[in-house]
Amino acid sequence: MDSKASTMNYAARTLAFVARFVVLGLAVAFIVGLFWPGSGSMLRSHLASVRPLAVAPMPDGPASYADAVAKAAPSVVNIYANKMVTEQPRELYSDPVLQRIFSVPTGPARTRRQQNLGSGVIVKEDGYVLTNNHVIANADDIQVLLYDGRVAKAQVVGSDEETDLAVLRVDAGNLPAIPMSEEGVKPRVGDVVLAIGNPFGIGQTVTMGIVSAIGRQLNLSSLENFIQTDAAINFGNSGGALVNAHGELVGINTSLIGQAVGAEGIGFAIPVSSAREVLDQIVQTGHVVRGWIGADYGAISISADSGLPSAARGVVVNEVSPGGPAARAGIQPRDVLLKLGSEDILDASDLRRHEASLKPGTAVEVSGLRNGAHFTASITPTQRPPTPMQPLRKVQ
């Protein structure tokens, strides 16, 4: 019984304690309402404005690249390069040995027309078109199919085998020039790109991918600086446009590594910066002039006694051409070249590109190390002699 009474007394005390605080709260609210009548509405509006912090959603990429395509596609053309080929019919043998020994003409020579398919990009409104040299090489007749369905005859203004670029001139009006990415703005790995061209001659086609790598070299020429992409590039895409998500030209599609070697999604484009340099020279003079210092060079082999820091850049001279500009300037084998003019030399590829951009006849200072000691020399480059090209895996 005592336990029950104790429990009831505890409950009564608790209820009395709560009642006192309720009465006190009502009294305070009455006084506040009496002397500050608008405080209640102010408090309610303040509490209503307080909301939980929301996390801003990440911006999504565009749902469509149709605007970029609409901007660039009218400037991309289909190219049909025709040449006459003369063939001598010969009797065929299944055995290759007999084929070589007993193969004899079986009739008069026959002439047929051979056609190369490719693509091109209108880069100037007055009719200049960029394409690949291997698309139009040795062609007797070049026809260009414009975006609006017109067919125009094209003439070769000039070509450059080392970069595999050629410039055509089309005699037609109302030609839309493709917008180019700003000079000095380079594509980044991961950027979305669109390849526009004429694969297999089926008509203009757009494929999408990303920039997979930049500065890629395949050892086809000394001036390689390819953009690698996984955007589908097929036969007939050669000379077509590689554009960014804004429809601006970033490269000229030129080659691929095909499925014959088990590759998939490995295509290459010439950067627009290189294409612009070739275009400007060919339009102005009809050909490309490159500087030459007359030396063969390669990567530096760092050793403890080289006098170079472990992260050194530059090149080591392997060979000097007798009577060439480097020889006349006193450059010697095993010299380490660190700077050309005001530019640091990063590696052999970087120096080749800088060397090619030199103006023949204009002296430039080169500095480096010889037997661990600093030296400088003045080299007057000459025009670069023809360089034999290695076979290119083309995208006709």
Rank of each mutant, 00 (worst) to 15 (best):
E182R: 14
G184K: 01
G184V: 03
V185H: 00
K186C: 08
P187F: 08
P187Q: 12
R188C: 05
R188L: 10
R188M: 09
R188S: 13
R188P: 00
R188D: 07
R188I: 11
V189E: 06
G190P: 00
D191R: 06
D191E: 13
D191M: 11
V192I: 12
V192A: 15
V193R: 02
V193H: 06
L194V: 03
L194A: 02
A195M: 03
N198H: 06
N198P: 05
N198E: 06
P199F: 11
P199C: 03
F200W: 08
F200T: 07
G201Y: 02
G201E: 09
I202D: 11
I202W: 12
I202C: 08
I202A: 12
Q204R: 14
T205H: 02
T205Q: 02
V206F: 05
V206H: 01
V206D: 14
T207P: 00
T207D: 11
T207Y: 00
M208K: 13
G209V: 05
G209F: 07
I210S: 03
I210A: 13
I210Y: 00
V211A: 10
V211F: 08
S212G: 14
I214R: 11
I214L: 09
G215S: 01
R216N: 04
R216C: 03
R216L: 09
Q217S: 14
